[in-house]
């Protein structure tokens, strides 16, 4: 790693101020950032740790909305959201491994927007609101492609508000080595309609499978997807799967999600 200092501000305001320094970077749980730093793929002058900001931690459920502080570790979400939003809790409880879940945070995951990360699919499928240090961003506007989001320099994800659907399921098919999603499908069924978000699959990062949503809004059963297919062109191809395989898995995982929510 290159040399840097670590700041540990106690408030969002102080963190935002600290991030004004040239080449400063926010440090969430560090589960992606620290391996990146070890490879010397980033050279921050200063890391601003968000771990000590109490206002960014915790899970609450009020009026059909689950709000998760941006600095909340996955393990806490898995535990504390289990009652209010079981599919989200299950997703959080299957990110990485237990030790990673004790450190990695939802804010860090959403800020990084890895194309194979789990959380972006939940945020997008739930129609979540990403609350930052300066504004609120609808999930539909937030994700802008692989590792790209609507966040500005120095902007911090302080909370995420998830409207709780009537029913939801996350189906993850793991990449055998990293255990990230080779394809992950989050399906959320609201009174207003069904939202299907897909992670792991696309070169454009997480996306909504709108054709599937339309079909399911007409008829909510796995058979409704018959004849629907994702075009392989924009899918990711790598060691672990071809474009065609990923496109196929999107269908399979979506059907499984439909069956899981009944």
């Amino acid at each position: 790693m290159y040399s840097f200092e670590v700041d540990k501000p106690g408030s969002v305001e102080a963190a935002v101020a600290a991030l004004q320094i040239e080449e400063a970077m926010a440090l969430g749980g560090g589960q992606t950032l620290i391996p990146t730093l070890k490879q010397r793929l980033a050279s921050p002058s200063r890391l601003v740790s968000l771990a000590g900001i109490a206002e960014m931690k915790g899970v609450s459920a009020v009026d059909g909305v689950v709000t998760i502080g941006g600095g909340t570790p996955h393990a806490t979400v898995a535990r504390e959201a289990a009652g209010a939003y079981p599919a989200l809790a299950a997703l959080a409880g299957n990110i990485g491994d237990p030790a990673v879940r004790n450190r990695g945070t939802i804010g860090g995951s959403l800020a990084n927007n890895d194309p194979a990360a789990c959380y972006p699919s939940a945020a997008l499928a739930s129609g979540a609101t990403i609350v930052t240090s300066s504004r609120e961003i609808a999930a539909d506007d937030y994700f802008q492609g692989m590792f790209t989001t609507a966040l500005h320099e120095g902007e911090i994800v302080t909370a995420v508000r998830f409207p709780v659907p009537q029913a939801a399921s996350y189906q993850k098919f793991e990449q055998p080595a990293s255990r990230f999603a080779l394809v992950g499908v989050f399906l959320a069924r609201f009174a207003e309609g069904v939202r299907v978000a897909v992670t792991g699959a696309s070169e454009d990062g997480v996306f909504r499978w709108s054709e599937a949503e339309e079909a399911l809004n007409k008829e909510f059963r796995a058979d409704a997807l018959t004849g629907l297919a994702i075009a392989p062109e924009n899918m990711i191809a790598d060691l672990h799967g071809t474009k065609e395989y990923r496109a196929h898995l999107v269908s399979v995982m979506t059907k499984r999600a439909i069956r899981a929510v009944g």
Binding site: P176, A177, S178, F180, D238, L239, H240
Partner: peptide, 20 residues
């Protein structure tokens, strides 16, 4: 499986891609 691309770049260069 340890995989190189045609240019001799190691694609399975960590536990993120080499499945233990």
């Amino acid at each position: 499986g340890c995989v190189y691309d045609e240019n001799g770049q190691l694609l399975s260069a960590s536990y993120m891609d080499y499945a233990m």
